[in-house]
Design a protein around this nucleic acid. Structure first.
Length: 488
RNA sequence: GAGCCAUUAGCUCAGGUGGUAGAGCACCGGACUUUUAAUCCGGGUGUCGGAGGUUCGAAUCCUCCAUGGCUCACCA
């Protein structure tokens, strides 16, 4: 395929031919390993002079004539191997011809070199895969972020800390599952293709089913199906799944991302608040061994209880402005102008309060904070506060200055829900593409009766960013969305 | 979507004001039986992101395009 194969690759093809000529399969078969690399280093006392079999990728090579060293990397880490003509005989040539990047199996005895490094002295080398491409340089590694994301496999081979992030990611998610399962939550799977995209305000991706000849939308949230399950009688359900939003890409947004949503019947948002602070600190403790973390230079303490503020109190606390009394159109206009917020006419008070909060307060919420009592206009699925109908029993959790969780007491009054949907429909007609769509089947479900419930959504990728101290969501997603390139 | 920046060898990078491309690692050949950024000797392997333009001459200046990064907008 390559028009001008570089000399490096030419040389590797020559070695490939050489192996074939000798009757050695360059792409070997099953290989039985007895140990992992780091296991041998850890258990050296027991394994000294014992025979072991290991397999991995050659990462470095130092040959001095009739003997030489190399480092082999497997999932657990790296270990040095030693080969010499006295032990390997005819096979020494094979050792000598190894390229960095080749995958081999090694059988040999464990010993420690003069310099004290645990090493396997090769008795037999088995070729498992000849590598044809040169790996990036050994001490600068691969830095070009574009190549790191596009060819993540290379990034994983040469940058061990990248592998650690994704091992951590796996542990965080499995710990979360364990936590929820232990508390009686049932994990379920709901459709990713929806005929009506709902549960959030976001632009969906559209796809098409040929046999049914209908357009379908990739889900933008898990919410509405999980609530249907509350109607069906599952009291505690959750789903950890991929959702898709057709929006811009940034260090905090990937078009597809992973969300946890859970619903607990007969609970409310206060119960969920306790669950969030308990679960997040539990995960940190279990995975990191501490609830005191460092995120982008800030020390953050995840141990409960987290600060709780209503949105209006937070605005007052951080900006010194009391918006509670601001109700007249004149007051609202003044506030919008003061903060340089663009508004539609007539100005929606709730939306304005939220805009002030997002623009001015959010960035200051480094320590874990629950912001409660969201305006009703921006919360079409949350239960209205009994004594303050302009606000809802809703909270978002902020850590490290960005939104980590969103939760509320779920609206279970079908008539109120219909009214909210109708309100959203008006916004949609007015051109708001992200306004929530009318979902008659969901309303029907509510008419059958849904128990009062607390519901929660957590952006898993963001949680992982915080726990692994990564500033970009692309560094916690193995294969982030990239633009297609012509040359690839 | 807008602004700023970047793109040079397989990788990491250097290439004041325009003069025909370099280093380290990797790689190739040679020496070397406990090295570890192995060492020593020899070798530069390139569509300077792409296409135009200015110029006697462009990696360098200009325009457009592509890709990426950051910031902003968007996205609760």
């Amino acid at each position: 395929m390559d028009q001008d194969i570089s000399d490096i690759i030419k040389a590797r093809f020559q070695k490939l031919d050489k192996l074939n000529d000798k009757g050695i399969n360059p792409y070997g078969q099953k290989y039985d390993r007895t140990h992992g690399a780091s296991e041998i280093i850890e258990d050296f006392e027991d394994l000294e002079n014992k025979n072991v079999s290991i397999a991995g990728r050659v990462m470095a090579k130092r040959v001095h004539g009739k003997a030489g060293f190399a480092h082999l990397q497997d999932m657990s880490g790296q270990i040095q191997i030693y080969g010499r003509v006295d032990d390997l005989g005819d096979q020494y040539q094979l050792f000598n011809d190894l390229d960095i990047g080749d995958i081999i199996g090694v059988n040999g005895d464990v010993f420690k070199t003069r310099k004290g490094e645990v090493t396997v002295a090769c008795k037999e080398i088995t070729m498992l895969c000849k590598s044809l491409k040169p790996l990036p340089e050994k001490w600068h590694g691969l830095k070009d972020v574009e190549l790191r994301y596009r060819h993540r496999y290379v990034d994983l081979i040469v940058n061990p800390e990248v592998k650690d992030v994704f091992i951590m990611r796996s542990k965080i998610i499995s710990t979360m599952r364990e936590y929820l399962n232990d508390r009686g939550f049932l994990e379920v799977e709901t459709p990713t293709m929806h005929s009506i995209p709902g549960g959030a305000n976001a632009k969906p991706f559209i796809t098409h089913h040929n046999a049914l000849d209908i357009d379908l939308y990739l889900r933008i949230a898990l919410e509405l199906h999980l609530k249907r399950l509350l109607v069906g009688g599952f009291d505690k359900v959750y789903e950890i799944g991929r959702i898709f939003r057709n929006e811009g890409i940034s260090t905090k947004h990937n078009p597809e991302f992973t969300m946890l949503e859970l619903y607990q019947a007969y609970a409310d948002y206060e119960v969920i608040m306790e669950l969030v602070e308990d679960m997040v600190s539990h995960i940190a403790e279990k995975v990191l061994g501490t609830t005191k973390i460092s995120y982008q230079g800030s020390e953050i303490d995840l141990s409960p209880p987290w600060q709780r503020l209503t949105m209006l109190d937070a605005i007052e606390k951080y900006l010194g402005i009391d918006l509670k009394a601001a109700e007249s159109p004149g007051d609202l206009k003044e506030i919008a102008e003061k903060f340089g917020i663009e508004t539609d006419e007539p100005i929606s008070r709730g939306k304005l309060i939220n805009d002030v909060f997002e623009n001015e307060v959010e960035a200051r919420l480094i320590q874990p904070t629950f912001i409660t009592d969201y305006p009703i206009e921006i919360s079409p699925l949350a239960k209205r506060k009994e004594n303050d109908p302009d606000f809802t029993y809703r909270f978002e959790a902020f850590v490290g200055a960005f939104e980590l969780a969103n939760a509320f007491s779920e609206l279970n009054d079908p008539q109120d829900q219909r009214g909210r949907f109708e309100q959203q429909a008006k916004l949609r007609e007015a051109g708001d593409e992200e306004a929530h769509a009318m979902d008659e089947d969901f309303l029907l479900a509510l008419e059958y009766g849904m128990p009062p419930a607390g519901g929660l959504g957590i952006g898993i990728d963001r949680l992982i960013m915080i726990l692994t101290d990564n500033a970009s969501i692309r560094d916690v997603i193995l294969f982030p969305t990239m633009r297609q390139r012509d040359d690839q």
